[in-house]
Every structure is written in C-alpha cells, then in structure tokens.
Design a protein around this nucleic acid. Sequence first.
DNA 1: TGAAGCTGTCAAAGCGCTTTGAAATTTCCT
DNA 2: AGGAAATTTCAAAGCGCTTTGACAGCTTCA
Lengths: 342, 342
Amino acid sequence: MNLKQLSELLGLSQTTVSRALNGYPEVNEATRERVLQAVKETGYRPNKAAQRLATGKAGSIGLVMPTAPGHQSDVHFGEFLAGLGEEAVRHDFHFVIMPADPDDEVAALRRLAISGNVDALFVAYMRGHDPRLAMLKSLSMPYVVHGRSFGSEPDYPFLDIDNEGAFYDATRLLLQLGHTRFALMNGPMHLDFAIRRRNGVMSALAERRLTLDEDCVSHALMTDEQGLLAMERFLQLPERPTAILCSSTVLALGAIRAVNQAGLRLGEDISLIAHDDVLPLLKPENFSVPLTTTRSSLRAAGARIAQRLIGTVKQAGPFPDQELWKTELIVRSSTGPAPQRS
Amino acid sequence: MNLKQLSELLGLSQTTVSRALNGYPEVNEATRERVLQAVKETGYRPNKAAQRLATGKAGSIGLVMPTAPGHQSDVHFGEFLAGLGEEAVRHDFHFVIMPADPDDEVAALRRLAISGNVDALFVAYMRGHDPRLAMLKSLSMPYVVHGRSFGSEPDYPFLDIDNEGAFYDATRLLLQLGHTRFALMNGPMHLDFAIRRRNGVMSALAERRLTLDEDCVSHALMTDEQGLLAMERFLQLPERPTAILCSSTVLALGAIRAVNQAGLRLGEDISLIAHDDVLPLLKPENFSVPLTTTRSSLRAAGARIAQRLIGTVKQAGPFPDQELWKTELIVRSSTGPAPQRS
DNA sequence: TGAAGCTGTCAAAGCGCTTTGAAATTTCCT
DNA sequence: AGGAAATTTCAAAGCGCTTTGACAGCTTCA
C-alpha cells in the first residue's frame, strides 16, 4: 500500500493525502478525518526511504560502533544507547548504527554522513587530538560529541562530564584522609577521559608536592579482569599504594577481589574511589564494602545528547553548544583514613 | 556530488557510471577504470536513500531495542550487538535500531518492517506465546529469532541455545554431588529462556523425585542487585538450599556477595552454577572462587545470526532455518559435594 | 454585479539512484 | 565487403514521497 494507491482509494490526489497526513493547514478537516480513517484501515505507512529522498530528512541519528573480531564490547556503549533511545522513542527517531573497525573510525563516520541515511551524528570514544573533529566540521551536518578531545580547540558541540574535576576532588578527599601513596586505574590511554582524569589526580597531588609514579598507573580496558590484574600489580609494589582511584566500577570489581585475596581490608588498608557511570547492573552501594564514587549517569548523558540532536534537526530552538556536567562525590565505606605507616 | 554531476564530469551517461560502479560486466574495463578514478578524486558516494528506493535493498538489519524511562538497559543487548556488528562490518551492512517501549514491541516491529528502511529483521527477548511471531510470518521479510517462543509451534527461523539441556545437565551435576535442596535464580518469568531453564531444572529434579519449591525460585532482572536480594531471601529459608542455579554471571555476582556476607563458603556450604554468556566484563574464572558455568557465547550467536540474515538478503545460498546450540558445562570451584546435614 | 480574496484540491516536477529496452559502435565470420 | 553478432553506451521510466504553482469553486465587499 503506497500513497498512490491510498489516494486512488480515497478519490483524492496524492498531494491532498500527503498534506492531510503531514498536518498542513490547507486541507479540510472533514477530508483529513477521512484520510486518517483510511490510513487506520489499510495500515498504510509512508516509505521512509522515499520520504528521506524527498525531504532530505530521515528521522535518524547515526553512530559508529567500534567492533572487530576480538574487539571487546563495551558495557558503556549499551548503557549510553539506552539513554539515546529513551529520548528518541519520544520523537519517533531511530538510530543507524554503523559497525566499524576501531582503526577505521574517521572513514566510517564519513561514510555514514555521506550515505544520506542520517540527519545527525553522535560521536563518542573521543581521543586526544581526535582526527574526526576536522572531518565533522567540514560536514555541514549536526553532531554532538560525547566527551571532548584533549589538545584540540574546544570549538565544537559537546557534552562532557568534568572528568578532571571529579578525579581532582576524589584525590583531595583521599589526601585529606592522610593518604600519600596513590595509584590510578584508568581506561585506555589514548581516550580523552583517561587523560583528563589522570590530570585531575596529578594536579591535586601536585598541590601537596606529591607525584604519581609510573608504576602506579594502569591504562587498560575497563573489565573486571583488568582491574584484578592491575591491582595485583599495585599490591606487589615495594611501597604499596593505600589510595586507589579507579575509572570504573567494573574495574573496581576486579580490584576489590585482588584486595580481598591479598587479605587486606577495603576502607582500612586500602581506600578506593571509583567513577560510577550508574550502570544498572552494578550498584556501588551493593558492594560488600559500599563504594565511594564520583557519579554521573551515562544514560542521562545519552538522553540529553539525543535531545539536543533531535532538537537541532527539528529546528526546535537553540541548544547550548557545550555542556560540562559536574559529577557528584558520594562518600561510602570504601574510603577511610590512611593506615599508620607500618 | 551526485550521479548526474559525476556522469557529466566524465562525459558519460548515468547508466554507464552506475553500471561501472556496481560491477556490471557490460562496461568497458577502460571506462570502468576512468569512473573509479573519478570517484576517488571527487569522493562521490551514492545516496543510500535513493539506492534503497530504486533497488528495494537497504543493506541494513533492523532491530527493536526495548527502552523507556526507568527501563533497565541490558548488558546482553550490547554484547549481542557486538556480535551482529562483527559480521555486518564485513558486508558493509548497518543496523537500524528502533527504540520502543517494551509494551509496544509488536507495533514497533511492524513499523520498522513497513518503513522500508530495512531488509531483514532480528528479533530477541522472546516470550512464551510471543505475539510477534504471527506478525513476522505475515510480513514477507527475512527474519531470524534469537531464542524461541515456548508454547508456539517452532515453525520459524531461529537460533537458540539449549537452555533446558544446559540447566538439566547443571542440575544433574549437583544432584550427583549429593545436593537435595535446590534454588533457581532466573531471569524475568515471561521470557522464553527463563521458562526453559526452569523446566530443565525441574525435569532433572523430577528424576530423583525432587521438586523445586516456589520459595526457591526467583524471577527478576539480571543485575547484581537482584542477585544479592534473591540470595538473601534463599539464605533465610528454614531449609536453606545448598545448590543454586543462576541464569547469569551478573546475578551470581550479587548472589556470591550475599553468601560471603552470611559467612558461608562458596563451593562448600553453597554450590552454585551460573550460565555464562561470555560477557567480556565478567569472567567466571576470575571470581574469587572460580565459577562452575554453563557456557555459550552470546556474541558468537549474534555473529551467526547476522551471517544468516545477510546471507539471506544477498541470496547467498540456503541457511539452516533452525539452529540449537549446545552449551558447555565447565566445572570450576564453585561446586562441591553437598555439606553433611547439620 | 463584477472584482478580489479565500479555500480546498490537483497536476506535475523533482529527490538520486537503478534498470529496461533500444541505439550506436565494434568485432567476427563467410 | 556485407551482414550477423557481440559489445558498449544511452535515454527514459520508475521507485514513493513532498512541494510548487495553478486552478476551480465560494465568499465577500464596494
């Protein structure tokens, strides 16, 4: 069933039917009713590809999903998608996901943009000096970046959390508790958030003339296994750190296992603060020792970005171009005063 | 840059250029070279919407993502997507994801199919007597169901794991170890896999004239929090179960926390077998007490389904319509002989 | 009563691509 | 050399929708 058939059925022109459907004012209310009724009866749905071709609008947001055989999937991606979806479903938008090798991100993003399949782009997994930025600017298609790109001029639309501030505050809390030996369990080194979090830690330490030893930093995928491994390494250091900053509750999971296995007590021998993306499957308050965290909902960020993107496409008023969300520092039991030097 | 411009630039007709691009044999090799060269120089990309309109093929797989404010996102969804993506990227396919309220799945799926945006559908989160099945059959669009629908005639293309067999085997192992008091920590009751796993447990128990008490079954979202809560409930039962079957390693995470908090030892006081979807963020072998599991890679299932779907769209040979994958039962340390009756 | 202004409807063009069927050109065979 | 066959190219139609510009049919007002 297409427009033509429907209009023949009604004895109207395609024009009128189309207008009736799209809410144009110049069509008689009675006629519109009749059309709407027929749509219900026939189950007619406009062909999106044709609509897209005619209007240039597709009602969709494009994103690139990094994937490859052996490439670990990322919980954060799913959670973020849920946030995007929550908002998109309200506006009858959908997503076009282009899977791409992580090494091929720039090209994949360009393909997606040029394909004419999407109205706007969402970009994540930002790196330092990210090469996608230049391409996006040349594209004349709305986009929002989740995160930022360290080292690039911040002249693009983004939504980010204050990673540096979060880890600065967390570090200060631990300093106030008397800790002096710190370790950082971070995400992959090339990613922007990892760089900023590290900087946050370092600048808080610098204020006390402390430094972060190379041995006390781990950059790795954020899985519980990596958390376990990193923590085991830290614990074997001659000068064992007592304060751990951790880029994800998933990493913390493994880290805590290592702490337990070493016979140490969390919140006493070892203090730990993790960043909490508010993943529904892992609540910091339910850990056997509830976790002190810096918190910011990944899902909320997704919903907000979808809102901005869809709003821009629909030309529904201006949106702030750049948003920096503060994180909350929530103190629970995994942090405590530094143990007396043994 | 569109086809017309490109062909004018080359002094060829649109037909010839189109054919050259799409690998038709009736075009001179020299001409094809020239066209390919021009494409490189101009960066021309065909408009997908137009292609879709003309051919009826979109190069995309559609799926519905259940979402709503407050609706928990699901790790399994992301992992599955990674599997689909891994295969799709090889064939230059993409995904169209339609977010939809979980109560609106049937309608959302139909909208997606009729929109003309996708060539094939992937359907998950199957329920008992799933109403989507009838709709899919009426659709004349290829689809593959992940899972099955308990209570419906299995006359549709699917890929499923042998949930019943997995939990039957797991239960038998525990029976052989002398356990008699069982509990099952399952996913949401209406979902097909939950029904089958429960049946697997019950039929193994029935062979020994044992039953599964209502109090010893929990149906809930598969998060660590629900695992914790369910296990706490089980542990307070007057006749405490000693053998726990668990539908996910994520649930197991919480469950084990509860076991520890109760001062019980996993693998001694309590034996536990969990189903392992091979989520990259949670490896059963890294648990403080490595977990005995039934294993089947969700990601591999995703890749296989993508393969079938894409193959069907491209008419690349017939695929088996129905696949039932066996799971592996991997014994680690979380299972042990039943403790002596105290 | 006729010009002017609304309303509601329509025919047709156009979005960028593929594909059909025909035309132009080249190659082959007798 | 002459005609058939094969090769290469093309013009035009069509995919299903939106939108422009025109046109009837009614009101309205001087």
